[in-house]
Design a protein around this nucleic acid. Structure first.
Length: 567
DNA sequence: AAGCAATAG
DNA sequence: GGTTCTATTGCTT
């Protein structure tokens, strides 16, 4: 439904479109992009950012004395990541602590089971990227995709020749010079990537890699080609090179362990095998949609949109251990997990409607003990207490709920052996504000719609500047410095940025009211609407009732809509 | 709505 | 491969 977007992924395909009917192609593109006069670049321009050994970097910021020592971040008996000093000594990700100490006796270890600091920093990175461009998608804690097609499109007319920043895949620096004019959208993209990396470095102190390409798939694949702290751009003519360079099907994002195994059953081991395998046979094994997706991935084709995720859909806390087998231990552990989750939930401000408890059971026969879970609705009064005034009683009620779920999975009268317990809040609803509180939407500091770093960090994450200068101003500032980097004068005019923003508002939104909202709210809402989720449908459905009844993602923007619809 | 599988870092 | 501690999406009931 949502991806009638832009199927001109690779060279051959869009050239075909052009030769068939250049005008039609151009008009369709302009229509899809929501802009009438500016021609669209032939490709989307997608950025992928990947922080270098993220947890280790965060720990080195927290304690600068760790900068120059071999550092590993430890969860249980595993080194989950380590800095580059440690890597030089042979320490790798997911190495056991014993092996790592053997390789590198001077290795300094920091405990990393508590993800709080990583999560906070992670959302600061995403928020920083969001301050330049609304289309940012998170992937885990340390990666982000950014769709800068519109930024590029707006700046293209004003930018003269630009060379590439960073590497260009499969080409020497000299050869890249001559290619820049044929690929100005990617050249500009590489400058934006460089600028965003520099913003992340100067404002947050983090380094990382970036990839610039025409899709999420390719941007992600190319971002890792020069590590650490470098960036590289993939041009359409090198798509088959980079796909061919992948050592196995597992390297393709989207092909996980299970899919790779099934493909191997069909005799498919590397990319070429899949590229050449008959689609009809593939469809029999995987079904048509899945087969098409797999085949396209193997060819480097991916039209999946960058979808801004917004606030998380669920919050969970878990702990693993060698053995847990008595009820008292279980109760204590659940209580401990719940109490920290409760605090996180309270900072978030939203109200969870469902609770889930998961366990991992040990069994000698079936060691592939996957998780089992039971969930249930959270009684309304408890849900409310969680956000307003969570007290011991709130915890007790949730604990009792948890133990009921536990008894559905584990017979407490019989012996049991657990290796993990996890608690999770989901179906997160924003607080229904009272009518008098509408004005709070216009006072950023008091707004219930927080940015993630406001939620996750102590200092609130929003500078004064961020609130009072519209995001478009940032964008312009960014593009200007790209121009300056090319040693040409900046020439953008003052007021046109708003037009592109306001004329894409959903019809149910009063533009005047929208324009009064603080910039950060506008931005958050815009990015929600751009992702083609059924927000408006849900709004229509919940129009009559004053009670917000929407699920998960988009609920914030959705319920906000009720307050600035034309009356 | 519930539970699980698959994928991801 | 799995190990950790998350988080998301889609399938199935």
């Amino acid at each position: 439904m949502e991806s009638s977007e832009d199927e001109m992924e690779d060279e051959t395909e869009w050239k075909q479109h052009l030769t068939d009917s250049p005008r039609a192609c151009r008009q369709t593109s302009a229509l899809e992009s929501g802009l009438n006069n500016t021609p669209r670049p032939a490709h989307r321009v997608i950025l992928h950012f990947d922080l270098d050994c993220f947890y280790a970097q965060v720990e080195m910021i927290r304690n600068p004395a760790l900068r120059d020592v071999p550092l590993g971040v430890q969860q249980k008996y595993i080194i989950v990541t380590c800095n580059y000093v440690a890597r030089q000594q042979g320490v790798t990700k997911l190495m056991s602590v014993t092996d790592a100490k053997e390789k590198c006796p001077q290795l300094v270890l920091v405990k990393g089971e508590d993800l709080t600091h990583y999560r906070e920093m992670s959302y600061q990175v995403t928020d920083l990227l969001l301050s330049f461009c609304p289309l940012v998608e998170r992937l885990g804690f340390d990666e982000n995709f950014v769709d800068v097609t519109e930024m590029v499109q707006k700046q293209m007319p004003h930018t003269p020749h630009l060379s590439f920043k960073g590497h260009v895949y499969g080409t020497s620096n000299e050869a890249a010079e001559s290619k820049a004019s044929d690929h100005s959208e990617f050249a500009l993209g590489s400058h934006i990537a460089a600028e965003l990396r520099e913003a992340i470095r100067s404002q947050l102190g983090l380094t990382g890699c970036a990839g610039v390409a025409g899709s999420k798939l390719l941007a992600k694949l190319v971002s890792g080609t020069f590590k650490p702290n470098q960036q590289t751009t993939l041009l359409p003519e090198n798509i088959s090179d980079i796909m061919g360079s992948l050592s196995s099907l597992r390297k393709v994002p989207g092909i996980g362990h299970q899919t790779a195994k099934r493909l191997q059953t069909l005799g498919l081991l590397n990319i070429k095998d899949l590229q050449l395998f008959p689609s009809t046979v593939l469809a029999k094994e995987f079904g048509s949609p899945c087969a098409i997706r797999l085949k396209n991935l193997s060819l480097g084709l991916d039209d999946s949109p960058v979808r801004p995720a917004g606030a998380p859909q669920s919050l969970s806390d878990e702990d693993s251990f060698k053995k847990m087998s008595c009820v008292k231990e279980v109760t204590d552990k659940i209580q401990q997990l719940l109490s920290s989750l409760l605090e996180r939930m309270r900072k978030d401000g939203r109200q969870p409607r469902t609770f889930r408890l998961s366990v991992r059971k040990y069994s000698a026969s079936n060691k592939w003990c996957s998780r089992e879970s039971r969930q249930c609705p959270i009684p309304n009064h408890v849900g409310h207490e969680i956000t307003s005034a969570s007290n011991d009683d709130t915890l007790a009620q949730l604990l009792s709920l948890a133990m009921k779920l536990f008894s559905k999975m584990v017979d407490m009268a019989a012996p049991f052996h657990l290796t993990l317990i996890s608690v999770c809040f989901s179906n997160l609803q924003i607080q229904a504000p009272t009518r008098g509180a509408i004005t709070s939407f216009f006072a950023p500091a008091a707004s219930p719609l927080k940015t993630q770093s406001q939620i996750n960090s102590k200092n609130g994450g929003g500078t004064d500047d961020e609130f009072h200068s519209p995001p478009q101003a940032r964008l312009k500032q960014s593009a200007c410095s790209v121009l300056e980097a090319a040693s040409h004068p900046a020439t953008s005019s003052g007021g046109d940025a708003d037009i592109s923003a306001t004329h894409r508002l959903p019809s149910s939104v009063d533009p005047q009211v929208f324009s009064q909202l603080p910039a950060n709210l506008q931005m958050e809402l815009m990015s929600e609407w751009e992702q083609q989720r059924p927000l408006l449908k849900i709004t229509a459905a919940s129009k009559k009732t004053k009670d917000k009844k929407s699920t998960g993602r988009g609920s914030q923007a959705n319920s906000l809509l009720n307050y600035f619809k034309p009356m």
